[in-house]
Design a protein around this nucleic acid. Structure first.
Lengths: 263, 263
DNA sequence: GACGATATTATGTCTAGACAAAAAATATCG
DNA sequence: CGATATTTTTTGTCTAGACATAATATCGTC
């Protein structure tokens, strides 16, 4: 059964690079421009996590490049964790373009549940305020926007574990003003809206205030390990938060080698 | 002046991959094996920082690969920071194969001096002991080897800043038993012997003991920010140390984006 | 010898074509 | 129908050759 396949000579293309390309032509190399274009599709949400992207031959036609060139771009994106590629299956946008590797610890719920304990988040306080209230800590915010300030505790089997103070940019997540965080803590809900594309993290230590010690059920003079983070989603400031861990029972582990695990 | 260049057809090679290759043939791809081989040369010190390595065509002959393949391996090594490549000049082993980027903060002296203060290290205690004394914290050490245990403070203008507790593997740095650390603190001297190729870091917080508070001139109930690190140099355990920072005045700053600055 | 034009060399980027390998889709057989 | 064999699709890897580009080396001229 000779399948009626169009055997066209794979698009005749200008020699030595096609300037026909539909890309914003900068000085960058073709590989870089292809990489950029695909990354943009992902960053803007045109292509979403799990989507199958066009295969190499389709991209070859689309960009007027050779397969080797397209392959290089795709491989690079896969190496950076934006794509997952499988033979015969195709290339897929990686699940969750959220921050890879470094600092997975964002997900406290997961951490607690993986120890077989029941997770819950107890909201202690919530206020809506103009962003200029926080402009000292969070100058990146636009002056006239509004924010929600939250305080809550992450609990394992109803025992308080981590005290969270958080500011959320309402422009990014309007529902934050009345959402229920008992099931999904703020961090999880925020990630559902958009990926975290940038993160700033400051780790410090301090003595717990008396009321903080009470909330976390710690003896009074106690040390807290504090992780203060700001996140962005495609250049939009999303949230600023402080996770207060009891000093003794928590720590951050990092493991570095010049090139991760390759050699 | 027609140069007498042997125009040999670039080494006749078996089709579909040469198994003639002089490399420890694993299941890995040719590119990977070439990359590995070159990395080994650097890791073992056969090729040292600043050395010019054979050019692409020479490697092509040596490995029986095509130029594209060799190029891919070299580009990858350059991307990982092991090589620096310059047109016409050639490919060079990168200066300092030590830990790039992440955690430059190892150098406290530098940090203090860059603030215009005078740095000094005051040794408080030093003992030589069999490694099994520390086997609980440092199981990677060989059982019969010896270590030095140090305690000291890093000072800025003679004001104590950071309390350091450190164990050094004497097999790696025999002089540690009597070296003078007043000018160059242990960390600096260790880096002179060999690059740090792997690092483990645990950050935590705790209350300062009374004597620690006294050394660091802190009020008594005080929080300490503790960074506990283990380092290796080409698989040899080098040192385990704990840096105790006054909680209020110090913090660790991290800045992450999925792929560093590329997009 | 200083200086500028020119040649040379090594890397950077790209193409076209080939075969390999994995996995999904399809056909085949009991 | 279900288990197994075969085909097909898509990525993985490699080759050979080409032109581009940057930086060095060389040569000629004054």
């Amino acid at each position: 059964m000779p399948k009626a396949r169009k055997k066209k000579p794979l698009s005749v293309r200008a020699k030595t690079q096609a300037k026909i390309v539909t890309l914003p032509d900068s000085g960058a190399s073709l590989v870089d421009r292809i990489e950029q274009a695909i990354h943009d599709k992902i960053a803007t949400g045109s292509w979403r996590a799990g989507d199958r992207i066009p295969n190499e031959m389709e991209l070859v036609e689309q960009f007027g490049a050779s397969r080797a060139t397209v392959n290089k771009a795709l491989s690079s994106l896969a190496a950076s964790g934006f794509l997952v590629r499988r033979r015969k299956a195709g290339s897929f946008v990686a699940p969750n373009t959220e921050m890879h590797s470094v600092f997975k610890t964002i997900d406290i719920r997961n951490e607690i549940e993986s120890k077989g304990q029941r997770y819950s988040f107890r909201l202690i306080d919530r206020v809506v305020q103009p962003s200029k209230e926080a402009s000292l800590y969070w100058p990146e915010l636009e002056a006239e926007s509004k924010i929600v300030a939250l305080t809550g505790v992450h609990c394992a089997d109803d025992v308080p574990q981590v005290l969270e103070e958080r500011l959320i940019n309402l422009a990014f997540f309007p529902e934050a003003a009345e959402a229920d965080f008992a099931l999904d803590p703020p961090s999880v809900q925020l990630l559902k809206i958009g990926p975290c594309t940038r993160l700033e993290n400051v780790i410090s230590a301090r003595l717990a205030e008396q009321f903080e010690a009470r909330i976390l059920r710690l003896p009074f003079p106690s040390a807290l390990l504090v992780s203060e983070r700001k996140t962005w989603s495609n250049r939009v400031p999303v949230t600023l938060f402080r996770l207060n861990y009891p000093g003794g029972s928590h720590s951050f582990v990092g493991h570095f080698s010049p090139v991760e695990h390759k050699y």
